Amino acid sequence: MNDTQVIDLFSPDYAQARRKFMQAAQARGLSVDSHMLPLPGAQGEVLATDVVLDGPADASRMLIVISGVHGVEGFCGSAIQTGMLRMGGAVLPSDTSVLYVHAVNPYGFSHLRRATQENIDLNRNFVDFTKPLPINSGYGEIHDSLLPTQWPPLPDNEARIAEYRERHGVRGLQRAISLGQHSHADGLHYGGLEPAWSNKTFRSILRRYATQVRQLASIDIHTGLGPYGVGERIFASMDEDPAVLASGRRWWGELTSVTTGTSTSIPLTGPIQCALTDECPQARHVGICLEYGTYPMERVSAAMRAEHWLHRHGSGDTAQATGIQQEMKDAFYPDEPDWKHTVWQQGSQVCLQALRGLQEDAALPSLAT
C-alpha cells in the first residue's frame, strides 16, 4: 500500500471505521454478520460487533483478528482489519480462514471509553462467574484517590497514591490499579458480576464460526502501553504447553510474557483469551496481544483516570468534559501519520506471519490434523 492508502485505513470515529470495514468486506464479496447492540452511538449511529469470515467455513486452521476489546483502542485494530481485507484473499493458504471480529466493545469505541456500557473492562470479565470472584484488595485502598470528587485532583489526593507506590513499588501500584476488580462498579477496570453483552456476543461468534477448527491463531489488538508506535507482541495463550509458546516464537519472533514480568502489561483477571479456550477446546491455540505504545504512561494513565472521573461524577463544565474526552481519544489513538504507518506495517506483518505459521505447523508430523 502507498502512503495515502495506509492513512485511509484509519478513521476519525467509530461510524466511519465501521463503514470502511464493511465496505472492504463487501468489495471482496464477503458477507458481514452484524450483532447489534440496542443502544445509540455517540452520533446516534447503529452500534454493532461486526464479523467477517474470509476463507472456507469448514477450514481446519483459522486466524482470528480482534479489535475494540477496549473500545477507544479500536481505531488501531479496525484499521489493520480493514487493510487486511483490502489486501485480498490471495494471501490465504489452503484450508485456512481468517475471522475478523470488529469492535467487540462498540459502545466504548463510539463513546471514546475503554469500558463497555456496563462500565466493564472486558479483559477482566471473562471469568467463571459460578466460582468466587477474584479479589483485588489493593484497588479498594486507592479507589477514591484515583477518582476523587474534584478534578483535577488535589495535591493531597495524589500524595495518597504516591504513598501507596512507595509501599508497594511501581509494579505494585500498577497491579492494584490494573489487575481487575469486582468490588467497585463505578471504578477503573471493573470486571462485573456477570458476563457483559460483549462477552456473550463474542462467545456466540466463536460457537458459530470456530467449533471445527483444529489449529487456531489469534491477534488481539490494543493500544496505550509501551514506546510510541512499537507493537509489543505479548504471548496470550492460556495453554501452558511449552510447545505452544515455541510455535508463537517461531511465528512471530520475540514474545513478552505477563507471567514472567517481561511485558509492559501485568497478568489480568479474565482476559478475552479465556473465551477462546472455553469455546474452542478442540483447537490448539497460539495467540498474542499486539499492544501498541502511544504516549508516556503518565499521560495515558491521567487520561484514563479523568475519563473515568467524568463517568463517575459528571461535569457541569462542557469545555472540561469535551477536553477530557478528546484527551482520552488522543492518548489511545495518536492521529499522526508516522504512528499510523508503523501500526499498519507491524499489524499486517503479524497477521501474515500467523498465516504462514499455521501452514508451517500443519506440516509438522506432531501437529498434523
Rank of each mutant, 00 (worst) to 15 (best):
C351G: 14
G41F: 01
H168K: 07
A283D: 07
G192C: 09
R114F: 06
S204H: 02
G89Y: 00
W339S: 08
E118W: 02
Q43Y: 06
R356G: 03
L146E: 01
T260G: 06
G71F: 12
W251R: 01
A210D: 06
Q326V: 10
S94G: 10
Q23T: 11
I219A: 09
F109H: 13
L245H: 14
T262A: 07
G187V: 02
S183Y: 08
R207C: 12
E45L: 12
L310T: 10
A25V: 04
P337C: 01
Q346V: 09
H313R: 14
T262F: 10
S31T: 13
S60Y: 01
Q174I: 07
Q282A: 15
L85K: 01
V127Q: 05
G68N: 03
Y209H: 06
A363N: 13
L358A: 03
H311M: 14
Q345R: 14
V46A: 09
L367S: 09
D278E: 15
F235R: 08
W151A: 13
T260E: 13
I161K: 03
Q320H: 03
C280Y: 02
V52T: 05
N157P: 00
P106W: 03
K340Y: 00
A90R: 03
N157E: 14
Q346I: 07
G316P: 10
Y333T: 10
V52F: 06
E166G: 13
A303M: 08
S247P: 00
Y292K: 08
Y190D: 04
E307Y: 05
R250C: 11
F109V: 02
A159V: 03
V286A: 12
E141A: 04
G71K: 12
P153N: 02
D58P: 11
W197C: 01
H222Q: 11
V286F: 07
P195G: 12
A103S: 15
Q345H: 13
I272R: 06
G140Y: 03
Q326M: 13
Q181E: 12
A17V: 05
G357L: 01
A15C: 11
A24Q: 01
G138C: 06
A25Q: 02
N2Q: 09
R171V: 15
E232N: 12
H184F: 09
D13I: 07
T369I: 11
C351Y: 08
